[in-house]
Design a protein around this nucleic acid. Structure first.
Lengths: 223, 223
DNA sequence: AACATTTTGTTCATTAATAAACAAAATGTT
DNA sequence: AACATTTTGTTTATTAATGAACAAAATGTT
């Protein structure tokens, strides 16, 4: 049984500082013109310390992107364990996976803005999309849901992942004004009212006009 | 010639973290109920590290208060060297001592709010008042201004120092909404239009109605 | 008041970060 | 193109911070 060794706090703090410095500097001047000296000065650490943890600035970016991706995947997997118990869902209750997801995105908002923003980092989004899709495909195949789908699951998972990422991007570009819970509610309603089978995953049928619900949703947001 | 050794950045960072933790916790629960564990947890440092720098929480508070005081005195002394060259002053230009002072107060706003706020730390304010007054008295005596004053300088310096601290406290209690420059302009006008001799420090004469200027000042703030 | 639990203060061995120095590589200037 | 300057990557000795452990002191519970 391997003992899970928590990362020394000094290492954690150094990495956090560098991530923040990277995000700020990327916002200010893009990635390419950033120098190591810029990063270490902004992070208030010694240059040698940078090299204790990262090979170069590309390594810094890649490692941080991968951490974001792993965290998002982890939220996804943790929530999947508890989400099935919560069905049917009251119309004003967001799925907790989405609450956790948006809370996470807000906690890391500086870097998330850099990755998802208008001048966002496309390789990151491609990577994230790919991993989320594979993760989703695997889950479907494990549950043998493919047989119940009216559309091929590759398209379905692409549809859902892209739509979710689109909503995240819109939120980020709009300045992340809505709270994580508000965003979670928005995305829950879109996700579960449109594409879930009556038992669990509905066929893609639009039986109710969406306008009415969209209206009541915005009223709720105004209070 | 003693070499001025800059403080190792690790020490500086540790102290900054502890000051911030102290300020936050004082806001949340006052000083007396704060435990060392609260401080080190909030600051994300090892408990042993706390004791490398401070004897106990009282030492932490006192050292930080003294640093604020020394910094304020230092701003005062630095600005005095350049301020006399700038006379007469255009009505829309704040004295740079006050700009620097309010900038400093804003940079340290968390702790300043704790020290100057409504439930502020009275011993700090007493200490600050005393040191600023002594500093001011010394300067007057050095310049032999006492002979030109219409009132005893102990009273004059108490008047000025208390008035300035009153304004700072008002700003802090109001949420520090005005910018440092705005505050510097307010305090500059009050200070130099009311109490400075025509040549340098005027007698205490109120020749102009203060209302008119107060009005134009607020118009300026609205733009 | 007796006992349990928490907090504090201290010690110690280890680790991560530090600043300085140096050479190589990259960029800037003429 | 030649040279100057800046930036990078690396090495080293030193220092500050770390976590664990322990005893004493303080606080909480009955």
């Amino acid at each position: 049984m391997m003992e899970i060794k928590r990362e020394d706090r000094r290492i954690r703090q150094t990495k956090e500082k560098l991530r923040n410095a990277l995000a700020e500097l990327m916002k200010e001047k893009g990635f390419e013109s950033i120098r190591i000296h810029d990063l270490t000065e902004r992070a208030d650490i010694n240059r040698g310390t940078f090299y204790l943890h990262y090979k170069d600035k590309y390594d810094l970016l890649e490692q941080n992107e991968n951490e974001i991706i792993q965290d998002i995947v982890h939220i996804h997997e943790e929530a999947k364990k508890t989400e099935h118990a919560k069905h049917p869902r009251p119309p004003s209750e967001p799925a907790s996976i989405f609450v956790h997801l948006f809370e996470y995105l807000q906690e890391n908002s500086d870097f998330i803005q850099v990755l998802f923003g208008k001048n966002g980092h496309y390789s990151f989004q491609t990577k994230l999309k790919t991993i989320l899709r594979e993760n989703m495909l695997k889950k479907f195949l494990n549950a043998q849901l493919e047989k119940r789908m009216l559309i091929p699951i590759e398209y379905f998972s692409s549809y859902v992942i892209s739509a979710h990422l689109g909503i995240i991007q819109q939120w980020v570009e709009g300045g992340m004004k809505e709270s994580p819970k508000e965003m979670a509610l928005i995305i829950t309603r879109i996700t579960f009212h449109q594409i879930i089978a009556k038992e669990e995953y509905p066929a893609l049928k639009f039986e109710k006009p969406f306008q009415k619900e969209s209206e009541s949703m915005y009223n709720e947001r105004d209070k």
